[in-house]
């Protein structure tokens, strides 16, 4: 049990995808100007990551490893991710048209979100078992959500701040991202999986 908790906490805080590995920066910058939208984006990513993990694990263990096809890993990962993103898109379009319009192009772009591909590759690299994979996928998604929501919260406040002209827009956003990454370095001493 403590092993699962360790994987979970480590994926959220210690090895946060956005702030430690700098993965998934595109939506992290692109959809982080509003807390609600970024929360929804985070949830969509979490959903895809959590579902990707078991599929990838099953395909890797029972097909790729058995038939000695490790070179197909990237391709199969992409198939799984792309299909799941399609699924999420249909789901959101059906149940929340407003969210569908808010996320816009960033929704199909989850397909090319490197954080998701990375999480799929990572769980194979680390030899996680089935349950561990799911927990790792879920934790990574929560970590991404955490980072993007904090970022959105800061950016909402930044709207009212007197930012010097050369730093306005993307520049100050990247500075904030860097400072957040520094803050998350504080977790680096914690034991991680």
């Amino acid at each position: 049990m403590s092993e699962f908790l360790l994987i979970f906490i480590s994926a959220i805080l210690v090895n946060n995808f956005v702030l430690k590995y700098f993965l998934g920066i595109c939506p992290f910058i692109g959809v982080s100007d509003e807390v609600t939208a970024s929360l929804n984006m985070g949830m969509a990513v979490t959903f895809v990551m959590t579902l990707t993990a078991p599929f990838v694990w099953l395909i890797n263990t029972y097909i790729l490893a058995r038939f000695n096809l490790p070179f197909l890993e990237y391709v199969t990962d992409i198939i799984v991710i792309a299909s799941l993103v399609q699924l999420v898109e249909m789901f959101i379009k059906k149940y929340s048209r407003g969210l569908y319009n808010t996320l816009g192009i960033y929704l199909p772009l989850i397909t090319t979100n490197c954080a998701i591909l990375f999480s799929a590759l990572f769980l194979v690299l680390r030899n996680y078992n089935f349950i561990q994979s799911i927990i790792f996928g879920f934790g990574s998604g929560i970590g991404f959500t955490l980072a993007i929501v904090i970022m959105a919260g800061i950016r909402e406040e930044l709207e009212y701040a007197d930012v010097p002209k050369p730093f306005k827009g993307a520049a100050i956003t990247l500075l904030v991202a860097g400072l957040m990454a520094l803050a998350f370095m504080g977790f680096a001493g914690m034991p991680s999986a």
Partner: peptide, 10 residues
């Protein structure tokens, strides 16, 4: 086998 695998997954 690789082709069949991909086709099957697809």
């Amino acid at each position: 086998v690789a082709v069949l695998t991909m086709a099957g997954l697809g």
